[in-house]
Computed example of a mutant assay.
Amino acid sequence: MSTTPPHPSASKDAAGPRIAPGPPPAVHARGLTVELPSRDRPYAAPLRAVQELDLTVPAGQVTALVGANGAGKTTTLRTILGALPFSAGSLEVLGTAMGPARVAVPQGVAVVPDTPAYPERWTARKVARAQAAAGPFDLARFEARLTAHRVPLDRPVGSLSRGQLTQVAVAAALARDPHLLLLDEPFARLDPLARTDLVDELRELMARGDRTLLLSTHDLEGMDRFVDHLVVIAGGRAVLEGDVETLCEEFLLLEQPSDLAPGSDAGSPLIGPAATGGTMRGLVAVDDAAGLAPDASLRRPTMSELVTHCLRAAGATSAPDTTTAPATTSRRDES
Rank of each mutant, 00 (worst) to 15 (best):
R18L: 12
G158D: 03
L190D: 09
D228N: 13
V244K: 02
L47Y: 06
S90E: 13
G272I: 09
G222K: 03
P24M: 11
D210R: 03
V93P: 05
T246K: 08
L160N: 00
M206G: 13
A104H: 13
D210P: 03
H149V: 04
G209H: 06
S9C: 05
T75M: 02
D114S: 10
A49H: 10
R39K: 10
R78L: 07
F226A: 01
G89T: 13
G222N: 04
D321F: 05
T302W: 06
V199Q: 14
W122M: 15
E305T: 05
R332W: 06
M1V: 13
R129I: 13
A313P: 09
E120C: 05
G282M: 03
E35K: 12
A289C: 04
E204S: 15
P6G: 05
H229G: 00
T123I: 08
L214V: 02
G282C: 02
A20S: 12
G31F: 00
A148F: 03
R155P: 04
P178L: 06
L202V: 09
P301A: 11
L311T: 07
R121L: 13
E249R: 15
T276N: 09
G277T: 01
G263L: 10
D243H: 14
E334L: 06
I271R: 13
T308L: 14
S90A: 12
P136N: 07
P262E: 09
D265V: 05
D333I: 11
T96N: 09
D184T: 09
R162L: 08
S87T: 13
N69C: 05
E92M: 11
A172D: 08
L65N: 01
R145W: 11
L311W: 04
R39A: 14
R312A: 15
T123M: 05
L146A: 03
V232I: 14
D265R: 14
L32I: 01
S90M: 07
Q51E: 10
Y118A: 13
T96D: 07
L240W: 00
S258I: 09
P273N: 09
A238N: 07
K126G: 07
A207F: 02
L55F: 00
G135K: 06
V231R: 05
L139E: 11
L182A: 06
P152D: 08
